[in-house]
Computed example of a mutant assay.
Amino acid sequence: MPRTVPPIAPRVVAPCPGIGFPTMEEAVLITNPAAEATSEHVKEVIVKALSSNLHLEVVDTAAPGHATEVASEAVRSGYGLVVAFGGDGTLNEVANGMVGSDTPLAILPGGNANVVCRNLGLPADIVEATGRLLNGLREHTTRRISVGRTGGRCFLVSCGLGLRPPGAHDAERDADARRDAAGRRTGPRFPGRHLLEAAFRAAVRDRRGRDIRIHLSAGGVAEDVAVALITNMSQLSYVGDHPVTLAPEARLDEGLDVLAMRTFPLSYVPRLAWSALSDGSHVRFKQVLYLHDLGRVKATSAGVPFSVHLDGEFVEDRTEVEAELIRNGLAVLV
């Protein structure tokens, strides 16, 4: 049976002088009940805290894509703020409904890694993050960040090429395994927890001569590579509180960076892991191609498809990907 999105009543709000976006008195809180660090009790506490400053409407996501629809409707209806409470996957969906608008997005961490939150310098602890959000409401402090887009879908963290997570040989089965009876995503998402495992698998395939060669074109450079990550965030995952800094020169207000392996010897897996956790010297490794501040990246293969993931979600195998930068595409409450 087709699912209907609960309508959001239109709001009439006045612009805030000198700021260029609506006042934040009317807000929508979008929550993912399946996110790893969320619970009904935590949500109730957050709703109570935010309701002291906002006229708040709360929407629980019910299926993949639901958060995008709700966020898009909130922007069209003139809400002054959209709050996303969940992990990086939930945040990706919410952002996809808001890119290009002046409506600010506020982030409350409810996932395992909370990569976007940490890259923005926001607290990964939900109590501290709620306090920071309330301070941001009082001061109206926002920041515009750039995002990437490919195939009509935006990504905040990364677009990965050739890094195949476990079980991704069957996209539909992999997607179904991450959803509960209500259709909500569950469990860990790639690349955070599985990044090193995917790198190891890529290295094994490269050693056996089974790796797909991806032709990468960007910034006047054209090379064949085994795997690639496209991002404008420096830290793409975390081991505990330790950041995994794969793209050390990437900045949220600049262009896209590319980290690619020309070939992927097994010996590079521990070296890459150590460098990403320490000094970032891997960008100068002989087999590494690193490009900075790009507006567009194109990847193709000679008829053999390669795996693609966006912000941790395996999408599908493709023979061509073109990623473009949307500069200053998203307003974020900080």
Score class of each variant (00 low, 15 high):
L246W: 15
E25V: 12
T263G: 07
N232A: 06
A198E: 03
G148D: 03
T150W: 11
R178D: 07
Y290V: 05
R118C: 06
L161I: 11
V99S: 07
V283C: 04
G312N: 02
H169P: 00
A168E: 01
R132V: 05
A49M: 12
M1Y: 14
G151S: 08
F314G: 01
R207D: 02
L277V: 13
E36Q: 15
R132P: 00
N328S: 15
L134E: 09
R208E: 13
A226N: 13
L256R: 02
E316Q: 07
K298L: 15
A198F: 05
S52D: 09
H194W: 09
G111C: 06
Q235I: 03
E254C: 15
C154H: 10
N32L: 05
A181K: 04
V321R: 01
C159V: 13
M1K: 09
I30P: 02
R262S: 07
A323S: 14
V269R: 06
T300E: 14
R149G: 06
V147S: 04
D293F: 08
L161T: 13
P270D: 01
T68C: 09
N232Y: 03
P17N: 09
A34N: 05
P15L: 13
D88M: 04
G312L: 15
G167E: 07
L108K: 04
F285I: 03
V304K: 11
E324G: 10
R327T: 03
G20Y: 07
G329K: 04
R11P: 00
G167I: 13
F285S: 10
E320C: 06
R251Y: 13
A203F: 01
N53P: 00
V94Q: 07
V75K: 04
V115E: 01
A129V: 08
E316L: 10
L133V: 07
S275D: 10
V334W: 02
G80P: 04
L56K: 02
V204Q: 03
P15Y: 11
T130C: 04
V204T: 12
E249P: 00
M98G: 14
H41F: 11
L91G: 11
R143N: 07
P243E: 15
A14G: 09
G111I: 08
P270V: 05
G167W: 12
T186P: 09
L266N: 05
G183P: 03
R201K: 13
R284V: 15
V94F: 10
V308Y: 00
G100D: 07
R296W: 04
H282S: 08
V147R: 01
G295I: 02
K48F: 12
L259E: 00
S278Y: 12
D317G: 07
E316H: 06
F21C: 15
G80C: 04
S39P: 02
A63P: 00
D206V: 00
A302Q: 14
P166I: 12
N92S: 10
N119W: 03
L252R: 05
L156N: 14
R185E: 08
A9M: 11
D170H: 12
H169V: 06
S146G: 15
A203K: 01
S146A: 08
R138L: 11
C159Q: 14
N232S: 04
I107Q: 09
L54A: 03
L120E: 10
V42D: 11
L122E: 01
A181S: 05
G86A: 15
L56G: 06
S158I: 08
P166M: 13
Y238R: 01
G110L: 13
R193M: 12
